[in-house]
Computed example of a mutant assay.
Amino acid sequence: MSRRTIMIVGNGSVPEGAAAKIDAADTVIRFNDCRSVGPSGSKTDIVAVCNTGRPARSMLEGGWKTNAAVCRAKEIWSVRSAEKFSKMRAGLIEAYPDLGDFCDDYTRDFAAYAEMTGRLHRVLPAHVHEQLDRDLARFSPAPYVVPSSGMVVIAAVLSGFAKREDDVMLTGFDHVGWELHPFTAERRLVETLISQGHLRRLA
């Protein structure tokens, strides 16, 4: 079986001259509104979306469906399991009252869009998220709500989407952002996975 290059492109900074290397990859995964397009090339095979809460509603009510990168993608991945997030709702609202709509689920809307436009829709399974929480716990993160979508996708790719011989590469991951994602622990986990040879950062 031939070796594939799977490029996971976050919405953070990318190395100068990265575009050609990213566009040459066999599979390119981007996130949400794909604002990484430009300095990181244009090839987009998979768009992973945050399918709950305000980010999901904003995409669906805005111009996401006509975004050029989204239109190029062959697959849409919903990062959050509706079943898992529905179980989280009561405890989350108690701990963070301003996150009352955080677990509102828009998976069906993304699935309907994918079906209407002839592309595959996947929901990343809850067990990927749960194993990721256990892996992050090794780095004693401060209290957090959920891992970032980027980290969930990395975990999903490594737990079955990528084959043993594939080359999984990251770029656009600055590990900063919303204070209720465990970015410091995520950075440490990514560096551990790199040291173990499971993935690489695009130099």
Results as ranks from 00 to 15, higher is better:
A48W: 04
V49T: 09
C50K: 13
C50F: 13
N51Y: 01
N51F: 02
N51A: 05
N51T: 13
T52R: 12
T52I: 11
G53Y: 12
G53H: 10
G53E: 06
A56H: 05
R57K: 15
S58G: 11
S58T: 13
M59F: 11
M59A: 01
L60D: 02
E61T: 15
G62F: 00
G63M: 07
G63K: 11
K65W: 02
T66L: 10
N67M: 02
A68P: 14
A69P: 02
A69E: 05
A69Q: 06
A69R: 01
V70L: 14
V70T: 14
V70C: 14
C71K: 15
C71F: 13
R72L: 15
R72S: 15
A73V: 14
E75C: 09
E75W: 03
I76N: 08
I76E: 13
W77I: 15
S78T: 12
S78D: 04
V79Y: 06
V79E: 03
V79Q: 06
R80F: 15
S81D: 05
S81G: 01
S81R: 02
A82D: 06
A82F: 06
K84N: 07
K84Q: 11
S86F: 10
S86K: 15
S86G: 09
K87E: 07
K87Q: 13
M88D: 13
M88N: 08
M88L: 15
R89K: 10
A90T: 15
A90G: 08
I93H: 01
I93A: 04
I93Y: 04
Y96W: 09
Y96P: 07
P97D: 00
P97R: 00
D98G: 00
D98M: 05
L99G: 08
D101F: 08
C103I: 04
C103L: 08
C103K: 01
D104G: 00
D104I: 00
D104A: 09
Y106S: 08
Y106R: 04
Y106F: 15
T107Q: 07
R108G: 14
R108P: 03
A111N: 07
A111F: 03
A112L: 06
A112N: 05
Y113G: 00
Y113R: 01
A114N: 13
M116G: 14
M116R: 13
T117C: 06
G118W: 04
R119P: 07
R119F: 07
L120Y: 08
L120F: 09
R122F: 03
L124P: 01
P125M: 02
A126G: 03
H127M: 05
H127P: 03
V128C: 09
V128M: 07
H129R: 05
